[in-house]
Design a protein around this nucleic acid. Structure first.
Length: 712
RNA sequence: GGGCGUUUAGCUCAGUGGUAGAGCGUUUCAUUGACAUUGAAAAGGUCAGAGGUCCGAUCCCUCUAACGCCCACCA
C-alpha cells in the first residue's frame, strides 16, 4: 500500500483504470445508486456535440464545469444524472462527407440520395463516438447508458410529431419567399446561420433614364440609383424613393427605362427607403433582397429572378449574361453601363456581406419555396419566461442578447435542401404537384387526387429545429418525470439565440414549462494574446495533448483555476502545470500520512475527534473551506472555489498542519481523517487522482468509490 | 449602425468605499526523512487616462482611449 506512493503520481496509468472502475461500477447511472428520495433531483444535459467535432478547449471548459456540478450534487445524495448525446449536425456533417467524396472523385449527386445517406451513416458510425471518448478522458461522469443521437428513431419520431403539431396549429406554413441561400451547399439557411463579413466593395451610381419618347431628352432626364450589386439590376422591377423626399416628389408614378434590359419600370414611393443613402433613390429587385421583396409585395411588383440556385445568372438575366458567375456578370454590366454613359460615378464602400456559416461561400438572397415557423406566438413565451425570472440567464447581461434577438426575430426558415437530417413529414400529390398533406406516416392513399402514391418532400429540417427539442426529446418517459426541467444548461454565448432561445420556446410549447431553471453562459477561451482560438488559423490548443502531457486532473485544474466568472479566459498553460504539481502534492501528502498514521483506523474510527490545538485549527479551516466551496459551486464561482480548495490543502493542511505533525507525537489517526475529508473536497475538481488515492487507502466499510461518497 | 465586456505585479487573473492579493516568473536563503513537481522569505503596482461625488475612490458616476465579443436585410 505505502509502496504504491513511492513513485510520483502518474496520471497516465491511473486515469483509464479509474474511469473503467467508475463505469463498470455503474456509478454514473442514478438508477443504480442509492439516492436520497427526499432531495430534489439534479440533472444536466450535455449540449450534444456535432458528430464532426473533435474536443476543443471550449468543450473541455463546458464539460469540466458540468462535471463539477454533477459530481458535487451526486455526492450530496441527490438523484443526479448527466445525459450525453450527439447531434447529427445537418449541413456540417454533410459537408464533411461531401469533402471526402470529392477526394474520391465523386459527389453526392453521383451517388444519389439513398447511397449518400448510407455513406453519412457509415461515417457517423466510424467517427460519431470519438468525441465522446474524449469527454471520457476528461473524466466526464455522464450516464452513457442514456446516450442519445438526434437521428435515433425515437428522437426522430419526436421531431416529426413536433412538425405536425406546429403545422396543425397553423404555426408552420409553406411559402415562396426570399431566403438566405448558399450556392455552394445548395440550400436555404436561417438568418442565424449567416455570418456578416466586412467587405471592401464599391458603390456604383447608375443612371436610369426617364421613359420619355424623345431619345435626346432621355439622356438628360434620368434618376440616379446607388447600388453595391449592379448585376441584380437585370431583375429590377422598380425604382423606389422615400415619399417625403422633395427631390423626387414629381417623379413618383412616372417610369424609367431599365438599362440593358430596356424595359419600363415604375418609380414608386416607399417609406423603407433611406433618403440619406446614396442618392435617395434605390433600385428594387424583389427576387434578390429581403427589403425589396417586401417593397415588391406591398406595391404588387413583378418578380424577376436573375440569379439561380447555383449562384449563376439565369436566362431571365438575358442572353448575354445567362450562365455567368456573379462577379463576371457584375464586371460585364459595369462595362456596358460605362459604354452607354450611364455610370455616373463609383465610390469605395465598406459593406457587410453575408457568408455561409458552414462553408464560407458568399450567400445569395433568392426566392424559393420553403417552410417557415411563425415566431410571433412562440417568441412571446420565450420572452415572458425570462422576463419573469423563471428562467435565469447567468450572467444577467446576456438576457439582453436574448431578448433583443427575440424581439426582432423574423419567421424561421426551417427547411433545408440537403439530405442529411429529418426529412419533412410532408407528402405531395403527384397529380397536383403543389398540393400536399402533412402527416407522421405516408398516407396509404392520396387524399388529394385519390389515387397517386404521393411523394415525400425532399427537404430536411434545420438541425436546430431538432436540437431545440433536446431537453425533452432526449429523455425517456420516466426520465421526463424525474429530470425535466433540468437545473442548469451550460453553454457558450454564441448559441444563445441559435439554441437556447429555441429550446426555451419549444419547452414551453410542449411541456408548458421551461426546460431548465438556469442557463449558465460560460467564458470563451482565447489564446494567451486574446485571439480567438481557431483550427484554421492554427491558434487552437488540443486538450488531448494537454491531458497526455499533464493529466486530465491538471487540465481540469488549469481551466477552472482561470474561470473566475464570465471574464473570457486567455488560456495560460502554466495553470495546467500548476494543476499537475497540485495532483502530485496530494499524492505526496498521502505518502506522508500513510507513513505516519500507521493505523488506517476503520471507517468509523477515522472520524476521530480533534485533540491538539493544531487538530482543531485544521478542522476549523477545513470546515470553513468546505462551506465556502459549497457556496461558490452553487453560485457558479468555480475558479474561486478551486482557489479555496488549493489554499486549504496546500497551505493549511500541508504547510502548516503536516509540518506541525512532524513535531507532534501521539495519536495520528486524525490526520488520516483530514486527508480523507480533503479528498472529498477536491474530488469534483480533480476526480482521478483523488479516486486513485481513495481506492488505495480507503478504510474497510467505506463506499466503493470516492465519487459516491457522502459529501457531508 | 446597435448592444455588451475588458483595462490591477514581468505574464494570466482575483479583490475591496478606508495598509493592494494569488498562481507562474524573478531574487535570496534552507532542506539528505511526504514532495526539488519542496519549504521560508524578498523584490515588483500613481489599480488605462481625465473629470466628478465623498472625510476618503482601484471600487460609485461622466467622458476619453485601446482591445475584444455579439447582434444587424440601409440597397
Amino acid at each position: 500500500m505505502k509502496e504504491d506512493f513511492d513513485k510520483p503520481y502518474d496520471p497516465k496509468s491511473a486515469e483509464a483504470r479509474i474511469y473503467q472502475l467508475w463505469e463498470e461500477g455503474g456509478f454514473f447511472d442514478p438508477d443504480k445508486l442509492k439516492t436520497d428520495k427526499k432531495k430534489k433531483t439534479y440533472s444536466i444535459l450535455l449540449p450534444p456535440p456535432n458528430v464532426t467535432g473533435s474536443l476543443h478547449l471550449g468543450h473541455a471548459l463546458n464539460a469540466t464545469v458540468s462535471d463539477i456540478l454533477i459530481r458535487f450534487n451526486r455526492m450530496t445524495g441527490k438523484k443526479t444524472v448527466w445525459l450525453p448525446g450527439i447531434d447529427h449536425a445537418g449541413i456540417a456533417t454533410q459537408n464533411v462527407v461531401e469533402k471526402e467524396l470529392r477526394k474520391q472523385g465523386t459527389s453526392r449527386y453521383e451517388l444519389g440520395r439513398e447511397k449518400f445517406i448510407e455513406r453519412v451513416w457509415q461515417w457517423k458510425e466510424q467517427y460519431g463516438s470519438i468525441i465522446l471518448d474524449q469527454f471520457k478522458r476528461l473524466g466526464a461522469s455522464c450516464d452513457w447508458s442514456r446516450l442519445r443521437f438526434t437521428l435515433d428513431e425515437k428522437y426522430a419520431d419526436e421531431v416529426l410529431k413536433t412538425f405536425v403539431h406546429y403545422y396543425e396549429k397553423g404555426l408552420i406554413y409553406r411559402g415562396s419567399r426570399v431566403v438566405n441561400w448558399c450556392p455552394r451547399c445548395r440550400t436555404s439557411l436561417s438568418d442565424l446561420e449567416v455570418r456578416h463579413e466586412e467587405t471592401k466593395t464599391k458603390l456604383w451610381y447608375i443612371k436610369y433614364p426617364l421613359a420619355i419618347k424623345n431619345a435626346e431628352l432621355r439622356m438628360q432626364n434620368y434618376i440616379v440609383v446607388a447600388t453595391t450589386r449592379p448585376e441584380t439590376m437585370l431583375g429590377d422591377t422598380a425604382v423606389a424613393v422615400n415619399p417625403s423626399d422633395p427631390r423626387y416628389k414629381n417623379l413618383v408614378g412616372q417610369k424609367v427605362i431599365l438599362p440593358i434590359q430596356n424595359k419600363k419600370i415604375p418609380i414608386i414611393a416607399d417609406r423603407n427607403v433611406d433618403k440619406d443613402f446614396g442618392t435617395g433613390a434605390v433600385k428594387v429587385t424583389p427576387a434578390h433582397s429581403f427589403t425589396d421583396f417586401e417593397i415588391g409585395e406591398k406595391n404588387g411588383l413583378e418578380i424577376v429572378e436573375v440569379i439561380g440556385q447555383d449562384g449563376r445568372m439565369t436566362e431571365l438575366a438575358g442572353i448575354n449574361f445567362a450562365g455567368l458567375k456573379i462577379d463576371e456578370a457584375r464586371e460585364k454590366i459595369v462595362q456596358e453601363l460605362e459604354k452607354e454613359g450611364l455610370l455616373e460615378k463609383i465610390e469605395d464602400y465598406n459593406n457587410y456581406v453575408g457568408h455561409c456559416d458552414r462553408c464560407n461561400a458568399v450567400l445569395e438572397q433568392l426566392i424559393s419555396p420553403q417552410w417557415f415557423l411563425r415566431m410571433d406566438h412562440l417568441k412571446d413565451f420565450a420572452v415572458k419566461i425570462v422576463r419573469s425570472g423563471k428562467t435565469k440567464i447567468i450572467p444577467k447581461n446576456f438576457e439582453k442578447t436574448y431578448l433583443s434577438w427575440l424581439n426582432n426575430v423574423r419567421d424561421w426558415c426551417i427547411s433545408r435542401q440537403i439530405w442529411w437530417g429529418h426529412r419533412l413529414p410532408v407528402y405531395f400529390c403527384e397529380q397536383k404537384t403543389e398540393e400536399f398533406t402533412v402527416s407522421l406516416a405516408k398516407p396509404d392513399k392520396c387524399p388529394i387526387c385519390g389515387n397517386c402514391k404521393m411523394k415525400q418532400s425532399e427537404d430536411v429540417l434545420d438541425t436546430w429545429f431538432s436540437s431545440a427539442l433536446w431537453p425533452f426529446a432526449a429523455l425517456s418517459k420516466k426520465d421526463l418525470q424525474d429530470f425535466y426541467p433540468s437545473q442548469v444548461l451550460i453553454t457558450a454565448r454564441d448559441i444563445i439565440n441559435l439554441w437556447v432561445a429555441r429550446m426555451i420556446f419549444s419547452g414551453m410549447e410542449f411541456k408548458s414549462e421551461t426546460p431548465f431553471e438556469k442557463t449558465l453562459i460560460h467564458a470563451t477561451i482565447l489564446t494567451k494574446d486574446g485571439k480567438r482560438m481557431s483550427k484554421s488559423k492554427g491558434t487552437g490548443i488540443d486538450p488531448l495533448i494537454l491531458i497526455d502531457n499533464f493529466g486530465a486532473d491538471a487540465l481540469r485544474f488549469g481551466i477552472i483555476w482561470q474561470s473566475m466568472g464570465n471574464q473570457d479566459i486567455r488560456f495560460d498553460e502554466t495553470a495546467v502545470m500548476a494543476g499537475k504539481k497540485f495532483a502530485n502534492k496530494i499524492w505526496n501528502a498521502t505518502r506522508f500520512v500513510l507513513q505516519n498514521a500507521e493505523s488506517k483506523a476503520g471507517g468509523k474510527d477515522s472520524k476521530s475527534k480533534p485533540k491538539t490545538p493544531a487538530d482543531k485549527k485544521v478542522l476549523d479551516k477545513l470546515q470553513k473551506a468546505k462551506k465556502s466551496v459549497e457556496k461558490d459551486i452553487n453560485s457558479f464561482k468555480f475558479g474561486q472555489a478551486l482557489h479555496k480548495v488549493y489554499d486549504f490543502f496546500w497551505h493549511d493542511f500541508c504547510d502548516v498542519y503536516i509540518e506541525k505533525s512532524k513535531k507532534q507525537s501521539g495519536d495520528k489517526t486524525f490526520i488520516f481523517f483530514i486527508l480523507l475529508e480533503s479528498l472529498k473536497l477536491i474530488h469534483p475538481f480533480m476526480p482521478f487522482v483523488t479516486e486513485e488515492i481513495y481506492q488505495k487507502i480507503k478504510p474497510k466499510g467505506s463506499a466503493k468509490a470516492l465519487m459516491i461518497e457522502k459529501w457531508d
